[in-house]
Simulated assay, not measured.
Amino acid sequence: MTSNQDLIATPTAFDLAAYLTDRQPRVEAALDASIRPAYPDTIYAAMRYSLLAGGKRLRPILCLASCEAVGGDPDLALPMACALEMIHTMSLIHDDLPAMDNDDYRRGKLTNHKVYGDDIAILAGDGLLAYAFEYIATQTQGVSADRVLKAIAHLARAVGANGLVGGQVVDLESEGKSDISIETLIYIHNHKTGALFQSSVVCGAILAGATTAEIEKLAKFAQNIGLAFQIIDDILDITATGAELGKTAGKDVEAQKATYPKLWGLAESRHQADKLVAEAKTILAEFGDRALPLQALADYITDRKN
């Protein structure tokens, strides 16, 4: 996991390293408390193994920052933030399976199926997905039921066939094909990656009582940074080492996947990611200083090394 000292300074006076020093431990503690060991021991151990394996925790932190951006108390969004990480973890467990990307390492550790077997890994992902929605419904306090329901509906859509699942399907169907268009590639990543980024930002705002106009702006911001995140991922798959990534490098090339560097080249891919982040930050202008954490996190998307 990238240390706070490794983060690139943003052009604002906002101290992202200090912000993450506060937010990351709060998220980690909340995640640890969210799922305790229980019977059957194996499934709870497998769920906790991947959920607590570290990582940048970008999605939960974006959720908390979005809640703040529209004047909400981030503590109200903490159960949602945990649920987002549970769902993200589910997607990683399933993505690493032999039937998908077939990877042995994630976040510098053996992948879930390498430790617990394919069967338990599938069930661990299923368990995390189901529990994520239960956790939002039962643990969110001080927020009206209509807001909680609206946020749950948004998140469910982001995970299903209209979001993450749909993007993954098109991604799998595109492997090994030489005629994948940039439009198809953008579709894949707006759904496979961008949908959960968007839900992270939008759900935090919904719980805080954001207006329809505010939600629309934040959704566009999140779509931009989600796509930028994936472009940088594609670049890092080529330019970074396995040790830096915490997972196997060069998997996209090996699987003959369509990627942004493959279609655009490295320089243009970097340019497009920077452009997306610049546009995203412009969208946040009307939120003022309350959006400084989101602004800084947008910069981090393109400055990160893993």
Rank of each mutant, 00 (worst) to 15 (best):
I301V: 15
L276A: 13
A77P: 05
G117F: 13
D252A: 12
L245Y: 08
K247R: 11
A137T: 08
T140H: 03
D234I: 03
I61C: 07
G204Q: 12
K262Q: 15
T12D: 14
T21M: 10
R107T: 06
T302H: 06
G288H: 10
A255I: 00
L31R: 04
S144F: 00
V169M: 14
K150S: 11
L78N: 00
T10N: 14
S34R: 01
K251M: 10
T140Y: 03
L92R: 01
T21S: 15
A17F: 04
I122Q: 07
T89R: 02
A298D: 12
V253T: 09
G166P: 04
N112A: 13
R57G: 07
D6I: 00
V143A: 12
R36L: 15
A69C: 11
E244C: 02
S181C: 09
D233H: 11
Y105D: 12
E254K: 01
R107P: 13
E216L: 13
G55H: 02
P25V: 01
Y105K: 06
A83S: 15
Q272V: 13
V201N: 05
L76G: 07
K251T: 09
N306S: 14
D32R: 15
Q5R: 04
V169E: 14
P37K: 13
L52G: 10
T248Q: 13
P60K: 02
S91W: 09
A296Y: 04
R290I: 02
A255D: 14
H189W: 10
A213H: 05
K251R: 07
L7F: 11
E279N: 09
V277E: 07
L292G: 07
C82T: 04
I232L: 02
D126N: 05
N224K: 08
T89Q: 02
L123A: 06
D299P: 02
D289Y: 01
S174Y: 03
V253W: 03
A158M: 08
M47Q: 11
C203R: 03
L207N: 03
L128W: 03
Y300N: 12
K217T: 15
L245K: 01
D75Q: 15
L284R: 10
V169Q: 15
Y300A: 12
A145H: 07
A9M: 06
A158N: 07
R304T: 05
N112T: 15
D103G: 06
A210M: 07
G204H: 10
V202C: 12
M80V: 04
P293G: 10
Y300M: 10
A130I: 10
E134N: 11
A285T: 14
S3A: 11
G142P: 10
L78H: 03
A219E: 14
M47S: 09
P25F: 00
D289R: 10
D237T: 01
L110S: 08
F287I: 08
L76K: 15
R48P: 01
L7D: 05
N162A: 02
L129W: 00
I122L: 13
L196Q: 04
L207S: 06
